[in-house]
């Protein structure tokens, strides 16, 4: 366990070392939130509510997206693709180390810094933009945190699984990019899924994707009764188990292929 903690601490240091990359990352993320915020502001106009969200709720949804983007949508996918294609992954395979645990430690370091930064940004926004709904119910916060942590792990494992395509093809960057884009759409990271037609929404609800942004956001906004939220957390946990199993299976299959084909 200690090795993964050390990896976490080293990764924290390295992220801080790359100050400019971090800053640009955050500026980029903030720009998305700012444009979403302005977009909804204009769309709402002087309407009191839209799609069942009051104006402050909709604005809060946008802010929650900012936090969840930073927390959920960071993974090690691109690094993994690079390490597999360059053969660098070998240097981990010859050491007594579980690569997935190692990658997760590095990812957590990244999340730690991004979440810290995201809350800072929101603080700034709340000061500027009035009329934001700030939930005060501790139960909602607790359920939200749990949902977000699981969402983050689901994303990590799914992205990890997609990235292992690099074991078989040198063109795994394309699928990974599409996957990430589709995921943001299907998770509700661009807009609440209530915007979508009923059929499509139902279809998505049978996938793990809405659990990654839409569900935690609605929990925090108290749009879901606590008992229902607990039930859905159970479903989310099941998806997490599936995602972890898929990632492990993909990794093991990939390693077999790596071991057979060379690198």
């Amino acid at each position: 366990m200690k090795k993964y903690l050390t990896a976490y601490s080293i990764a924290l240091q390295e992220t801080l070392q790359r100050r400019w990359t971090l800053l640009m990352d955050r500026v980029g993320g903030f720009a998305v939130v700012l444009s979403l915020y302005s977009f909804w502001n204009v769309l709402l106009g002087d309407k009191a509510s839209f799609l069942g969200y009051t104006r402050p709720e909709m604005l809060t949804y946008v802010l929650i997206i900012n936090v969840l983007r930073s927390f959920v949508f960071t993974g090690r996918g691109w690094q993994l693709v690079g390490e597999i294609s360059s053969g660098r992954v070998s240097s981990y395979l010859v050491r007594p180390l579980r690569y997935q645990g190692y990658a997760l430690a590095l990812d957590l370091a990244q999340k730690t810094i991004h979440v810290g930064s995201a809350f800072l940004e929101i603080g700034l926004l709340v000061l500027v933009a009035r009329g934001v709904f700030i939930p005060r119910d501790p139960v909602a916060w607790a359920l939200f945190t749990l949902a977000a942590v699981m969402a983050s792990l689901i994303f990590f494992f799914l992205e990890f699984a997609v990235s292992t395509l690099a074991f078989w093809t040198s063109e795994s960057g394309g699928p990974l990019f599409c996957f990430e884009l589709f995921l943001q759409f299907a998770a509700g990271a661009f807009f609440p899924l209530d915007v979508l037609p009923e059929g499509l929404r139902r279809l998505l609800s049978a996938t793990p994707f809405p659990y990654m942004v839409y569900f935690p956001a609605r929990v925090l906004l108290q749009k879901i009764a606590p008992s229902e939220a607990v039930r859905l957390l159970g479903v989310e946990a099941a998806w997490l188990a599936v995602a972890a199993a898929v990632a492990a299976a993909a990794w093991n299959r990939g390693l077999l292929s790596y071991a057979a084909e060379g690198g």
Binding site: K3, A7, P96
Partner: peptide
């Protein structure tokens, strides 16, 4: 830093 990491990896 890499040395410290390897210290823990190799126990």
């Amino acid at each position: 830093e890499t040395f410290r990491l390897n210290k823990d990896i190799y126990g």
